[in-house]
Design a protein around this nucleic acid. Structure first.
Lengths: 221, 221
DNA sequence: GCAAAAGTGTTCCAGATACACCCATGT
DNA sequence: ACATGGGTGTATCTGGAACACTTTTGC
């Protein structure tokens, strides 16, 4: 038992992990194995330990619940409505995360818990205020596409310009002119040719590119 | 005494309140009246109550410690390094706030506490990790000036275009062309003439303007 | 009449947009 | 040979940047 002179809230971290698969923007959810909201889909996340910092907590929860490690992670917003958890006062620090779908090995579902990817436009009912958290993360993702190089976080090590353009088109939900897109993305000087090609199907092979500084997300304005 | 099965951190809110006064960007600080960091300047803020939400906590602390109410307030970032407070584990949700200096009546200092405004370029030593919090708030303020109408939050009800331009120049630390600034700011259609003038000194009077929707901060891209 | 800030338009440049044809491959 | 996606250049438009003189007032 831990005792305090005045009441303390609990702190959780929740992670909104996006990826792109099958030409769709996907969101990772876990099915809750315990009350409250048992059986309902929710964001991966959970209680912060007293001796770990916030980002470590988010990474640990993501790894424990889904087996996923090493993704791009950024703090999103902190949600603290008084009644957002029926058990006790819980403040959650939400993160959003992006990953290339080929980087991820989903852990075989532990316990009775299930983990799965959902299309952003056909999400199930979500536990707590997770719908609101997802909405904010999605808005931020769309906004950041315009003024940062965050889209590269969705790409595998090598990719074609068409694949990269697909990512932008899927997230922005609009078609882009191929020539203008290529001019723009190359002018950023954030990607370079690998010298290799991707042959696929009955047409001209596409040059493969890599991100010059894969860990970094640049503000491009 | 309050008991929990596992240890809970404390949650605080801290407020980085900016204003513009004497052609300088100023920051509000309070001198700590108790340990730790007794006597050191710090951001206004304090422990969140178990039955209030985060923003309410920030507004309450600001009002209690400084007497200031009704300012523009926006969540900044949540700081949770394990050792950021020597007493116990404390996670702080930082807010930044902006106000017109004429709107604010500083409360006469209560207790042994002092409250004062400091120039951003001559800040004293700060308690905890507040220097880092201030740095992030300042960076955000400068960035938001470019893509939102946040600067209006510094203005009194009626103001001249020169006064508004001063605000931009002080925060951006660069001079702006008067004609271009006026063209740009009027094209936003966020301010309108009041029909009144400001006569001051031996020169042509300036038209007074007001913000059309003072509560709102628009993203202008 | 003079000092001091307010007010006002046009030119220029750079970055974004629109747009169509040839290329290399597999079948 | 043909179907498929890959690759490329130019003309136009638009928003931002540079730039100087006249107006109104108080003293």
């Amino acid at each position: 038992m831990y005792q305090y002179e005045f009441p303390h809230p609990a702190i959780t971290t929740d992670i909104v992990l996006f990826t792109i698969r099958d030409k769709q923007l996907k969101l990772l959810l876990v099915r809750r194995g315990s009350e409250p909201f048992k059986g309902t889909w929710a964001l991966p996340g959970g209680f912060m330990q007293i001796d770990e910092d916030l980002e470590s907590s988010a990474r640990r929860e993501l790894a424990e619940e889904t087996g996923i490690e090493g993704v791009y992670l950024e703090q999103l917003y902190t949600f603290g409505a008084v009644d957002r958890d029926p058990r006790e006062r819980v403040v959650t620090v939400a993160y959003y995360a992006l990953a290339a779908s080929d980087q991820m090995v989903l852990r075989a579902a532990t316990d009775a818990e299930a983990v799965d990817w959902f299309d952003m436009d056909t999400l199930p009912e979500l536990a707590f205020d997770h719908r609101q958290i997802v909405a904010m993360a999605h808005k931020r993702l769309v906004a950041k596409l315009d003024y940062s190089t965050i889209a590269f976080q969705f790409m595998p090590q090598e990719f074609t310009l068409s694949e990269l353009q697909d990512v932008y088109e899927i997230i922005l939900r609009e078609e882009l002119d191929r020539r203008n897109f290529r001019k723009w993305i190359l002018a950023l000087e954030q990607i370079e040719e690998t010298g290799r090609e991707k042959r696929q199907g009955a047409h001209r092979p596409a040059k493969l590119y890599r991100v010059i500084d894969p860990g970094r997300v640049e503000i491009i304005k």
